[in-house]
Design a protein around this nucleic acid. Sequence first.
DNA 1: AATTTCACG
DNA 2: ACGTACGTGAAATTA
Length: 336
Amino acid sequence: MKLVDKPKKTKSGQYATGEDVLLKLGDHEIVSLILEYRENEKLRSTYVEALPKMISQFDGRIHTDYRQAVAATGRLSSNNPNLQNIPIRTEKGRQVRSAFVPRNKDYLFMSADYSQIELRIAASFAKDEIMIEAFRSGRDIHSTTAAKVFKVPLEKVTPDMRRKAKEVNFGILYGSTAFGLSQNLQTSRKEAAEIIESYFTEFPAIKRYMDDSINQAREVEYVETILGRRRYLRDINSRNVTTRGFAERNAINAPIQGSAADIIKIAMINIQRWLEKENLKTRMILQVHDELVFDLFKEEKEIVTERVTHLMKNAIRIEVPMDVEVGIGKNWLEAH
DNA sequence: AATTTCACG
DNA sequence: ACGTACGTGAAATTA
């Protein structure tokens, strides 16, 4: 439709039509129509029509498989079907999620989520006193970051400043560049670069930790999680800047993402041991990276809530307290 | 079989 | 000038 002069192409030479590309075409009505169609098709083909076919003839339930040796960071992955990517972000998506229900009327769905686990791990590894103190005092981490980065008192942080700070906090964990952040914030590279610079001035320990991670990786060509899982980074000394850049971002991200995986695995082992020891009817049924989902026997509500929270918070001791949010409802959506 | 897109954390 | 934020899996399309 000649909406732009030089349309972006994919590496195989096709026109790129991903969501981020379409949204930069301007506000032609075709864009929202295509994206609406895509959303509907995704939900129809991947969930609404696929999942019912996966119902077991033996017990009427859907069973995923977890793979323990696929993800390079030590995370689990879920397949056949993937139950770690059930929709939640859009209204129609949430309808799909609400179809996941307990086994019978004596049960409820319970979800227990680690709050900001990766940022807490980063603060702890970096020994950043400001960020550690923010978590210890239970302050909102994104607002705290916004106050520091934009140099205003906490009460003067606007929703837009908080939104940007949140993107920065995530970007940091991924080793984001000014370009990446500007794309994500839909702002100029200049502003993105200024925000990042300001971030590193306010949180010097985080900057030091990131540099140390890369330098250590250069020495031994691997990085490690808190429990010693290694990710080998054989490209870390590559002379190709793009290749080396990937390895450097992995050097920052893998210990953090992987340590979060270590921690939830310890919690899962302790929770399962406890459920069996106590002969409880509640079952741990899903893991979604920082969340555990339970088919909760109603009469066990109080004890399970208390013990699961405790076992998740205390799986491993680090410099920062772990916070866990528990929700209970009559389906997976309501449990959040 | 490879690529592209998009669902999740 | 180029490429550019981490980790996955599934469906549809393209080659």
